[in-house]
Design a protein around this nucleic acid. Structure first.
Lengths: 345, 345
DNA sequence: TTGTACGCGTTATCAC
DNA sequence: GTGATAACGCGTACAA
């Protein structure tokens, strides 16, 4: 037999109060006398009371829980930011119920309904599948991270400035030709600004540039094939020139670096590489990868603070507040794939 | 104003039934006539009913939720297996509330109490902090993964066999000296068997071996320092000999590989490396890392199946069943760090 | 096959 | 400062 749970009623009887008082002991302890608080504290210990949040959620409607929707991608960025989000519990006290999805809209809709059924107080959306117009209509506030965010709040890296920083670093290294490698990206996502930033800078400074859009697919073999062909191409078209390449992720940059190392047994002087996201992977590469750091920890905290703020607003006003867009400045990480041959500087 | 939620009562009135019938519509639909089911279905749609799990949890005590306790480690293994666990939702329907911890026992105890307060039906423990004797006393079943598991159920890789496979692969390559690199590991954890397996095999086959226990710490700089000194050491003590090294993780193997590549601009023929875990990182290395694959996806599924089984047992018998220990066979992954110079084979 | 009445654990309202 | 009592949304004997 699972022995019956100890409830407020039991504590009340045991300590000679009513269960209202027990509730107040937890929620507004200052409204009890010191003495009575002690009596109750003792009763709780002696009966070995265990909190049950379910009753509270039902009565008050506040679960202290946030729903997270992640793409089930292999990209290290997502795994890292999820870790950071989870570790904010100590700071903000919100618990997390997490779903991952492969990008099917109907499935994600079901996941969200499920989260709402558990009375999560807000949603943190990393997945790109559902449009913000849909998310905006939900009864709880949503914060999107690095995704389309027209109708919901969001926390994004300043992708445009990040791209500008990346190219200008390459420019300072006097490259002859500037390449940007990216995957097909909807114009509505923040990441699209990486392309715009790159192009604008090159045009303004009259740099010779090329944008290489390549579908890397989900599997890394495909990525390797794409990058191999890119490498061949570059060596054919720009022999002996100094090539600066700005990749849309550290993942891609790393894969390209591998190709170079396998071919030349080192990072050749005529290549300068910059990635994007500043993930742990970039430090793990044979030659550490210069990158545009997205300040993942800061992003996680800002996203949560924003969401909590909206949750409060929603509770107070009765409806989800207007979207707020936070921008996190990117950090230029000068590492070996640009600095290896420039130890002076 | 947040408009009042639509409840079973509303549906009942609207469709002319009692709320018991509505409840049955969801829980035992076959007990209603086709016709009545249709009436109710229509009512649900027209009133735009949204499920609320809280009532059900309170009434029935089944939250369909599992609590997860992860170390907040940078090790890719944990991030990967967490992804796999989360993606089992489609298969088993259990939702996940996730906590990460830095290894403080008092903190983890609080996390677990919190999880229990939400009425999670079971616990999946990856963290090594709390002893299984503590976990075994909780009112819900726990499954440990790759951790000390004397008093709780567990799913582990066959670490001993994995180690044996690793060394025997190195032995087939006719190495002169066999090194095992590990970090200080409690004898009670499954991972300790990697050391035992290595030693036993070497002794049985009269191989010359060495176990290098080195504290790599949490930060990768420290790891690099440790491995650099190891490399120097090896080159001094075993000049011109063929060295086979079995690392306790792909992470460590990768770091060592980087040192070799930076020094020799390639993987020298006289080195053979094997890692452990078969994580994605191993494929991402410049020369893909031979490894003992832990079958992460399978481990995740087995862990969940085991936990669900125990949850059922607990419900039926009223107490947590006796521990069950599942062992997942490791898979030998022959990749470039052993096979680069043996294309025939 | 369907309905009544009560329980699940906590909070809110309003009296005292 | 404290206590009845009625929610909160759903499940389930038991009765019909």
């Amino acid at each position: 037999m699972p022995q019956k749970n100890v409830t407020f009623d039991d504590i009340a009887k045991y300590s000679g109060f009513s269960k209202t008082t027990i509730s107040r002991y937890f929620n507004r302890p200052e409204s009890l006398t010191e003495e009575h608080r002690n009596t109750i504290r003792k009763a709780l210990e002696e009966l070995d009371y265990k909190e049950n949040k379910t009753g509270r959620i039902l009565a008050k409607g506040t679960s202290e829980c946030v729903g997270i929707l992640m793409p089930s991608s292999r990209n290290f960025y997502y795994q890292e930011i999820l870790s950071e989000i989870l570790s904010t519990y100590d700071t903000y006290g919100y618990k997390f119920m997490v779903f991952t999805s492969d990008g099917n809209a109907e499935t994600e809709t079901r996941y969200i309904q499920e989260l709402l059924a558990y009375k999560v107080e807000g949603l943190m959306i990393f997945s790109h599948t559902l449009p913000s117009s849909y998310l905006a209509k939900l009864p709880v506030p949503s914060v999107g991270v690095e995704r389309e965010d027209e109708f919901i709040s969001s926390v994004n890296c300043d992708n445009y400035m990040g791209a500008v920083q990346a190219v200008s670093l390459l420019a300072r290294h006097n490259c002859d030709i500037f390449i940007h490698v990216n995957t097909p990206t909807p114009t509505s996502t923040p990441a699209f600004q990486r392309i715009t930033g790159f192009q604008d800078f090159c045009q303004e400074h009259h740099l010779k540039y090329e944008v290489q859009m390549r579908d890397m697919g989900a599997r890394s073999e495909n990525m390797r094939v794409q990058l191999s062909s890119l490498l061949e191409n570059l060596e054919r078209v720009y022999p002996d020139q100094k090539i600066g390449i700005f990749f849309s992720s550290d993942n891609t940059a790393n894969e390209f670096l591998k190709l170079l190392i396998r071919k030349y047994h080192t990072l050749p002087d005529r290549y300068r590489l910059v990635g994007f996201d500043g993930s742990y992977l970039g430090q793990q590469a044979v030659y550490s990868i210069s990158s545009i750091g997205q300040q993942i920890e800061k992003t996680a905290h800002e996203a949560l603070r924003l969401l909590i703020h909206m949750i409060r607003d929603t509770r107070e006003t009765g409806s989800v507040p207007a979207p707020v867009h936070k921008v996190i400045p990117p950090v230029l990480l000068r590492r070996e794939t640009t600095e290896l041959y420039n130890r002076k500087d």
